[in-house]
Write a protein that binds this DNA or RNA. Sequence first.
RNA 1: GCGGGCGUGGCGGAACUGGUAGACGCAACGGACUUAAAAUCCGUAGGGGGGCGACCCCCGUGCCGGUUCGAUUCCGGCCGCCCGCACCA
Length: 779
Amino acid sequence: WDAFGLPAENAAAERGVDPRAWTLGNIDFMRDELKRLGLALDWSREFATCDPEYYGRQQAWFLKLWASDLAYRKEGLVNWDPVDMTVLANEQVIDGRGWRSDAPVERKKLTQWFLRITRYADELLEGLKTLDRWPDKVRIMQENWIGRSTGLELRFDFAHGEGGLEVYTTRPDTLFGASFLALAADHPFAGSLAAGDPALAKFLTDCRRGGTSEAAIESAEKLGYDTGVRVRHPFDPDWLLPVWVANFVLMDYGTGAIFGCPAHDQRDLEFARKYRLPVKPVVLPAGEDPKTFQVGNEAWTGPGRIYNSAFLNGLEVEAAKAAAVARAEGANQGTGAVVYRLRDWGVSRQRGWGCPIPVIHCSKCGLVPAPERDLPVRLPEELDFSLPGNPLARHPTWKHVACPECGGPAERETDTLDTFVDSSWYFARFADPHAEAPIGPAADRWLPVDQYIGGIEHAVLHLLYARFVTRALRDQGMLKIDEPFAGLFTQGMVTHETYRRQNGEWVEPKAVRIAQEGATRRALDATTGEPLVIGDAEKMSKSKRNVVAPADIADTYGIDATRLFVLSDSPPDRDVQWTTAGVEGAWRLVNRIWAEFDSQPVRPASGGSEDPAATAMRRATHHTIKAVTEALDGFRFNSAIARIYEFVGTLRTTPAEGATPALVTARAEALDALARLVAPFAPHLAEQCWARLGNEGLVAVASWPVYDPALAEDNVKVLPVQIDGKRRGEIRAPAGATKDEVWELISADSEIGPKLQGVKVVRFIHVPDRIANLVTEPA
RNA sequence: GCGGGCGUGGCGGAACUGGUAGACGCAACGGACUUAAAAUCCGUAGGGGGGCGACCCCCGUGCCGGUUCGAUUCCGGCCGCCCGCACCA
């Protein structure tokens, strides 16, 4: 149970309940629901991330990472909610405002704990290539998120005085098109200049206030301030460039400073146009004349030949990049560099319902790890969530401890770990849930996880963190694997129609009656009859009240019909629009299956001579086993259930009255297979059927049926016969019939023959057991 | 802007590596059973046209074009929708 986090704190704040009691109550409820669904879970391995037995071990490995410099503290910019007095995750900032307080979020410098995920950036990128059972989409998203780029880190020396400014660029080929340098507002050099320049100081403040929302960024005007400082061009000391501060330069990417090449970068171009800086093209697109080529409102970012660029002239873009890097390195002006978009993972949260960071602040000894014998560092029993801010920091006694080093008065760290830390290693704990060590010896036997299942929303959060933590723990000698999840399946979201009253109020589906009038559907309030507006299907959420619990269906139709319905409705990787239309079909299937087992005496399988009906049934049985098995392997549960529908249809239409011994045997085989095939979908029904057949024990632990390949394929194939690509008839040919045999059958066919009158067959295409095609031309 | 995906009947959706498009289910319609209804069972069904009839023909997987004996599937260009990232130098 991923049990720490905001929902419990919110409930505590809003209703005054204890977050622990609230969480454990929800777990009890969910456990009952899962059991009711008949899921096959090993409850002996159950734990919650809020158990001290779990988070204490998490604290243990956190301290190991700290000792290895994989965890560290630094000052960083965070989203600060001034009303709730807490740091917010990026996801909790909506349009620049705190999601609960609605207050404008400030960017604030705080000293925070970080995990050094960037040390593994390259390995995490390379590792993606080995994940051949992961969806491409997730791999691409992680690749983009890690964002590896190669370029040049380059120094521009000050025109006056010592030193210079470091700039990162991926386009060193365009260096001769430079017309300015631009610093981020948070760049230290900008800060130092501001001390003597009030106007600059004001500009920097304005920049920091700028919204962080997508819309704000989209529409944000390029703003700049000329600091008056000048730097020398690294390839031409006589060429001086102005140093600006610009609001579009980010401090936490590259070096926080860029050189602007307006002709070949759209942002630089907008900036240059606004402040009337030079726009000098240095990449000539193919087919353009160097004398007439001009850059208008669109920067040219495509390929071309370098010109106006001294020693780079005549080179193509890629060659010019290499040449520029070589020259810069030779002149000791810069080095080729690899830069990642990925940042270190800030894990400090000013929250009370999370895993305490097991560190003690001592005024004499500095940061001291909590001694191992004191782990787990437990949360206090009583926490007051009624006020904004961190209840741990406010707690009267909890944080006051003696320093483990000097014994003097000291304070505990009151930040807790991001809950994504909790979920980044639980799979390893599952593998050996009662081990004394955080990760027990059995983990090596079980891991990696064969098949992981989760929503796409975790593509770059949980799934990246878990891959990183796995490697970090591996390097601590705690794990032997590189990748935690060998196979990944991303299931879709469940959506539901939304309903609103005329006044805009949302109405929950339970309270809605749908009136079907021919093709039109109308929604009415089930009690008052008030007409409602039917809205789009959206992800189920409390705010839109479009949530439906499967338990409601289970109350009417039972768990097995509900499970069959949910699985048969649509493929699991797709979003589904929840509707109960169709659940009747699953209900019928359950009843039909049971009728097959219940309606007639169970007769033992006992051989019998050949009989066409029996053979047909055996073929249907083995064909179904094959089809269902393959569909399950491919996660096509809807197709698997469709095959079961067909199979049950076959059973029903095969008369049991007056059956030959062979048919009785075939039927017994069919029912045996059916019970096993149905078990994953409708376990309770399957057990009942299994017992009805007189078996001992559970079908749940019985083996999966095995098909006979000879029986799974039809021995007679229906081959469509095409003439010039259009279907003109069909023949029945024995399986594996040769081209000549098929030609014989076509020639002899009374329907196809006449259609070949007056034409000449110039080509005969035969795909064995599939199709025949006659290509003709006029005779 | 960049990256990825999707588009098939009234609906959810099938169709293996190019080989009978619409499996299976829902809804619908017709029939049987019933005093009646529900339930259940049987049957019909992409669109259009022809034939008394068993049947036959044409069109059809967002649109236009291409490759191929054959395209829902491959290629090019549009249109529409969805998701992710985003001032990343």
